[in-house]
């Protein structure tokens, strides 16, 4: 009862969510109709639960940067750098120090990854709040630096041979459910709570809505924006852990196409790129919708490139419809 009320409230407040759900259902129905026997197989949905968390986390990271009217073009760089640094560390510990490839080492790796995300996010936040570089240019630059560091560390080819426990984070199963999916639910829930129920979240919304008024209202604008990029960085590094765990490899140019997709998904999920508006639920549904779309087309034997085409067209269409609707009002 309480939940349903909450839910209705949420839908009422933000009919974007309702529209997204309708869109997702529609995609589901169309895909089912096109190839009922293949699309509805359990395996298909299971593979989606492995694939979408990394993109979902990157999209949420993007959304958080957009809440204050910014953008984070360095998320993929951070993700790859986290994975690669962990890989490098694992090899070093294993070969040079003879440390066992067990859980302690993986925990160390997780700490390292998240630390990388935190530091990278702090650098972004510092450039944006202290040096007043606009976010798109600051993160464009740092993104190059992070990917560049990946190249320096690997020399080009992928780092392979991650410990099993690490791979478990990316392709393991717990209680019959994909581990990355569980991680995603946990993190997404946490972020949703953070954005709606904590001072940080409300601060970010207010700052994004009107940065000047935020100063006059006595909000600690610089610090909050800094926190938001740190958070964005940490989320990106989580995506990096899952990505390298799932593929059991890390490379400087993995997931390059994720960057643009993350931007588009967060906008599609109802985030206002000018700031002040965005929900975890919206972004998550948008990711799921697009994943259903692409898995459906994959079953129909469309090539990945063609699916990119459909994504682009689909996103433009939806955003255009939204713009059209808002203008009519």
């Amino acid at each position: 009862m309480k939940f349903s009320l909450d839910f209705r409230n949420m839908v009422n407040r933000d009919n974007n969510i309702l529209q997204l759900i309708m869109m997702t259902v529609l995609i589901f129905i169309i895909m089912t109709a096109l190839s009922p026997d293949k699309f509805l197989r359990y395996y298909n949905f299971e593979s989606i639960t492995y694939l979408f968390p990394e993109l979902g986390l990157l999209s949420i990271a993007m959304m958080i940067a957009m809440l204050t009217g910014g953008i984070d073009l360095s998320v993929v760089g951070i993700a790859n750098l986290s994975g690669i640094l962990s890989g490098v560390m694992f090899h070093y510990l294993n070969r040079e120090l003879g440390m066992e490839q067990g859980v302690p080492m993986v925990l160390l790796g997780v700490c390292l990854s998240l630390g990388v995300g935190l530091i990278a996010g702090t650098i972004n936040g510092f450039l944006i709040t202290k040096l007043n570089i606009i976010p798109i240019l600051a993160t464009l630059g740092t993104g190059q630096v992070f990917i560049g560091l990946c190249l320096v560390l690997t020399g080009g080819p992928a780092i392979v041979g991650f410990p099993d426990a690490w791979a478990f984070l990316g392709n393991g199963k717990l209680f019959g459910i994909a581990v990355p999916f569980l991680l995603f639910l946990l993190v997404a829930g946490g972020i949703a709570f953070l954005l709606t129920r904590t001072t940080l979240g409300v601060n970010l919304m207010l700052i994004g809505s009107n940065p000047r008024a935020a100063i006059f209202a006595g909000l600690k604008k610089s610090r909050m924006v800094l926190y938001s990029y740190m958070l964005s960085g940490v989320l990106a590094s989580m995506a990096g852990i899952i990505l390298s765990g799932r593929t059991n490899a890390a490379k400087s140019d993995y997931g390059t196409s994720y960057l643009l997709q993350a931007v588009l998904i967060s906008v599609l999920g109802g985030t206002n790129p000018a700031g002040g508006k965005g929900t975890v639920a919206g972004v998550s549904i948008a990711v799921v919708a697009l994943m259903l779309l692409s898995s459906g087309f994959q079953i129909l034997r469309f090539s990945n490139h063609l699916i990119d085409f459909i994504w682009g067209a689909f996103l433009l269409l939806v955003i255009a419809i939204n713009a059209w609707k808002n203008r009519a009002r």
């Binding site: 904590t198 409300v202 207010l206 809505s209 008024a213 909000l219």
Partner: peptide, 28 residues
Amino acid sequence: SEGLFMTQSIKRNIIATSLDNLAKGGII
């Protein structure tokens, strides 16, 4: 341009300045 958060609720506009006092450990 300096006073209001136009796209936010009345509630959030009112509590903007006293957020910290209305929260415990950062939780509202």
